[in-house]
């Protein structure tokens, strides 16, 4: 059995007017030591998905149906106190906004120590500090900066310190939600290399959430493309990156800036930049039908079906054979 199994996970937000589906029947599984990237534009539900795994949805968000099994535990029905023991000890998170992920009035070192000592109450302070020193060595921050306050760190340092904290309890799974988005490209590259190396070395499973398909392709074994709450294409990195099938994936890839500074148009027929149309999402029909240059009558009348391109490469589209 895989380390993490997500079955039919549907997450919704209650608003004044309606109940909005943010993630719709998401299925995937993840083995120990493997990494999966979830790619999609803002608002497609990828962060919601990550939060739901840790049961950290905002108060108006809830899991409508589905199961999340982690190491044999049904995470969604776990009592709160047991869930608190799973958090960080088993599943850690690297946050989107490292700038604001640190409590501004507490020293960084104390915040990392808090994580260690919450999950290991017996450890002495000296031992815990030693652990933090080792983590700092790993993420290449000088040890004399451990007990600085967050505002004394640069953005990149804060992000690396977050990675150090994520590793503090040796988790089995790390969810990295846009870990490099706020950073400049050089620091971004350093951080990505770090994450990749640590993930490999410690044999940690990784869920990497990003809007940048190039970044994801550099880090992950598998890629899932998410659009309007649905996974529309999933497969091994090479398959999705080299042979994208879903028109949305192709559009996403074609808007990806290559090293030459030109748009590499992979699909001449869908140059339109992906964006979420204003029309309400029909629950069953393909969400991309309004923008898809290939949309046929069938797309507008029938829900799309999952097709297997290869045993590991699947796509949710009526057009693909």
């Amino acid at each position: 059995m895989a380390l993490l199994e997500v079955e039919n996970l549907t997450i919704a937000y209650k608003t004044r007017r309606e109940t909005a589906i943010a993630a719709d029947r998401v299925n995937f599984s993840l083995e120990r030591g493997r990494s999966v990237g979830i790619v999609g534009e803002s608002g497609c539900g990828k962060t919601t998905l990550g939060m739901a795994l840790l049961r950290l949805l905002p108060s108006n968000g809830f899991v409508k149906k589905g199961r999340v099994t982690f190491d044999g535990m049904d995470l969604l029905s776990l009592p709160d106190t047991r869930m608190q023991r799973v958090r960080w000890k088993r599943i850690a998170m690297i946050f989107q906004a490292a700038m604001n992920a640190w409590n501004p009035v507490q020293r960084i070192g104390d915040q990392i120590l808090e994580a260690i000592r919450t999950h290991d109450p017996k450890i002495t302070k000296a031992e815990a500090v030693k652990q933090v020193e080792q983590l700092y060595e790993l993420v290449e921050i000088p040890a004399d900066r451990i007990f600085d306050f967050p505002h004394q760190y640069s953005g990149g340092m804060k992000q690396r310190a977050i990675i150090a904290m994520a590793l503090a309890c040796s988790p089995d799974l790390i969810i990295a939600d846009e870990p490099t988005t706020a950073l400049d490209v050089i620091v971004q590259d350093q951080i990505l290399q770090k994450i990749k190396a640590i993930q490999k070395e410690k044999n940690i499973a990784l869920i990497f959430i990003s809007h940048d398909i190039g970044v994801v392709a550099g880090v992950c074994h598998e890629i899932m493309v998410m659009y309007r709450g649905k996974i529309v294409e999933a497969g091994r990195r090479e398959e999705v990156f080299e042979v994208p099938v879903h028109p949305y994936t192709r559009a996403l890839l074609s808007s990806y800036l290559t090293i030459d500074g030109v748009f590499e148009i992979r699909d001449k027929q869908s140059p339109a930049p992906p964006c979420t149309p204003a029309e309400p999402l029909s629950k069953e029909l393909c969400g991309y039908v309004h923008l898809c240059p290939h949309a046929s009558e069938a797309c507008r009348s029938r829900p799309p079906q999952w097709r297997e391109i290869t045993p590991t490469h699947k796509v949710l589209c009526s057009l693909c054979r």
Partner: peptide, 14 residues
């Protein structure tokens, strides 16, 4: 609403 509250929760604090 701040992000560090989310961090604190994610850390498994009570």
């Amino acid at each position: 609403k701040e992000d560090y509250i989310l961090t604190a929760r994610a850390k498994g604090l009570s």
